[in-house]
């Protein structure tokens, strides 16, 4: 075939492929959001779910998702920060470091269901935490650590070395320099990474079904004592999240409005994740500006 003709055919094909992808996304988003929006109301977002009758909401699941997200971040951020600092600031190029890097890569590519099963084995069964927010938070921590560590490491690596030398030359230890100069300088990038990983954690379900559990007992939103069983803050209670809820009602839900609830929940989930994405961009941009200019 004439190379010119085949060139044009090929390029036309590429246009078709690229627009197909855009169409797929548009269709997906359109389906989720347009299909789900009618189901969303204040009542839907705040009231508890119903097992057999219609009219249930996702209030508890939504709360659980956020609570679990916050707990997961509280546990995983310090660990990821420490690990990221060590990898970028202290680690020498030797076999230990490459072993550590390999294991982090392995963890990041492990199927989340395997991570969830491990969490089930260790926290739910071995440590006796049962199906609980705490077990779920630990499982999500494992799920979250590799990517968060990597993004923190990259953020630190992007801070020019001159800043480190500046701290060292003042007689400060490397640790102080990193903690008080390098980390603040890398903060916009670190926060962007944190928020993006929050979106991932928020939507994760496979790691949770056997750790945080698949039930959402009624909560008393006036009782904020974390030691009471009906308190929303109690970390030892089972907590079905929004993502798990979608899976659950689609696999074995028997309420008559299961589909509407799933549509609404999916829309809430996707809108939340979109929100995290936008927030990440906004925060990164805003802080970056604040840190670089007066």
């Amino acid at each position: 075939m004439n190379p010119k003709v085949s060139n044009q055919i090929a390029i036309a094909m590429l246009y078709v492929i690229a627009s197909t992808i855009v169409v797929i996304l548009a269709a997906l988003l359109g389906y989720i959001i347009i299909g789900g929006l009618p189901a969303i109301s204040w009542h839907f977002l705040t009231s508890p779910a119903k097992a057999f009758t219609s009219g249930g909401g996702i209030g508890i699941q939504l709360f659980n998702s956020f609570y679990l997200l916050i707990l997961t971040m509280l546990i995983s951020f310090p660990i990821a920060l420490g690990a990221g600092i060590y990898l970028n600031e202290y680690a020498k190029q030797n076999w230990v470091t490459s072993l550590v890097r390999t294991s982090i890569e392995i963890l990041s590519s492990l199927p989340s269901v395997v991570v969830g099963l491990f969490g089930f084995l260790i926290f739910v069964v071995q440590f006796g935490f049962g199906f609980s927010i705490l077990s779920g938070a630990f499982a999500l921590t494992f799920f979250n650590l590799p990517l968060l560590t990597r993004s923190i490491e990259e953020a630190l690596a992007a801070v020019p070395n001159e800043q480190r030398e500046g701290g060292l030359a003042l007689g400060l230890s490397k640790w102080e320099t990193v903690l008080h100069i390098i980390v603040p300088a890398a903060l916009p990038t670190i926060l962007t990474g944190v928020i993006l990983s929050a979106g991932r954690v928020f939507g994760e379900a496979a790691a949770l079904i056997y750790t945080a559990g698949q039930s959402a007992p009624a909560l008393n939103f006036t009782d904020w004592n974390p030691f009471n069983i009906s308190s929303p803050l109690n970390p030892m209670r089972p907590a079905e999240t929004l993502a798990v809820h979608i899976w659950k009602i689609n696999s074995e839900g028997i309420m008559p409005d299961a589909k509407a609830i799933s549509s609404g929940s999916s829309a809430v989930l996707v809108i939340s994740v979109l929100g995290f994405n936008l927030l990440a961009r906004f925060v990164g941009h805003r802080l970056f500006k604040r840190f670089t200019a007066g």
């Binding site: 020019p160 001159e162 800043q163 030398e165 500046g166 701290g167 060292l168 030359a169 003042l170 007689g171 400060l172 230890s173 100069i181 603040p184 300088a185 840190f291 670089t292």
Partner: peptide
């Protein structure tokens, strides 16, 4: 070295003020 560097300070080629 930290005590020593408090007595022997250094200024570098490229200005490196902290982002503070």
């Amino acid at each position: 070295v930290y005590k020593m560097r408090r007595r022997i300070g250094m200024v570098f080629q490229r200005p490196n003020p902290f982002s503070k």
